[in-house]
């Protein structure tokens, strides 16, 4: 089943090609969006992202996951704007407590992360949750590698500062994480 094409510029790209692209990247994109918006609008944002990707598919040299993330970022901001919100506070995952991850550390990192600015949080999400390389993150954020490295360094410094302010994690984390705390 297909509908009549509304665009004359995509005659050489079939929906089947795009469907392959979709299946290649749908799962990571859904997770990317789920980290940033409430569950009820995840599908909506993902669908809008792919709809825009389709429009621009033949205009970019290398349609890639970071390119999709960049489109999704705008769609997420659009959703925030529609809902008149600054940004979502998606509940962080419950950290599985072990000897290596004691409760105090879990609480401290959660609290420190929440104190970061939205842009710092986003940078750390891209780095540690979305598992992008730094050159890919530069694509998503539309900045140079040099700028990105500076921003990552500063975001981590601010995170450490909040940790020191709010917790005993710094004492613990100075040690190798596989070393259990002394009794």
């Amino acid at each position: 089943m297909r509908f009549r094409s509304t665009r004359s510029s995509h005659s050489q790209i079939s929906l089947r090609d795009f469907e392959g692209f979709y299946h290649q990247h749908a799962a990571p994109l859904i997770r990317f969006v789920a980290r940033r918006v409430r569950p009820s609008v995840v599908d909506e944002v993902v669908a809008a992202t792919f709809a825009i990707a389709w429009k621009k598919f033949d205009l970019v040299a290398n349609p890639s996951l970071p390119w999709l993330y960049r489109i999704a970022t705008f769609e997420i901001l659009h959703d925030y704007r529609r809902q008149s919100r600054e940004g979502e506070q998606i509940p962080l995952a419950d950290i599985e407590l072990t000897d290596d991850f004691p409760l105090d550390d879990a609480l401290s990192i959660t609290g420190a992360f929440a104190q970061l600015s939205q842009s710092d949080q986003e940078l750390l999400r891209l780095l540690y949750w979305d598992d992008l390389r730094r050159d890919e993150i530069a694509v998503v954020l539309g900045c140079s590698m040099g700028t990105l490295n500076v921003r990552v360094h500063r975001a981590m410094e601010r995170l450490r500062a909040f940790l020191v302010e709010t917790s005993s994690l710094s004492d613990h984390a100075d040690k190798p994480h596989h070393v259990p705390e002394e009794e």
Partner: peptide, 12 residues
């Protein structure tokens, strides 16, 4: 250790 904790916070 800090990076491992950050990764563990991933809600997805």
């Amino acid at each position: 250790y800090l990076e491992t904790l950050l990764r563990a916070l991933d809600p997805a």
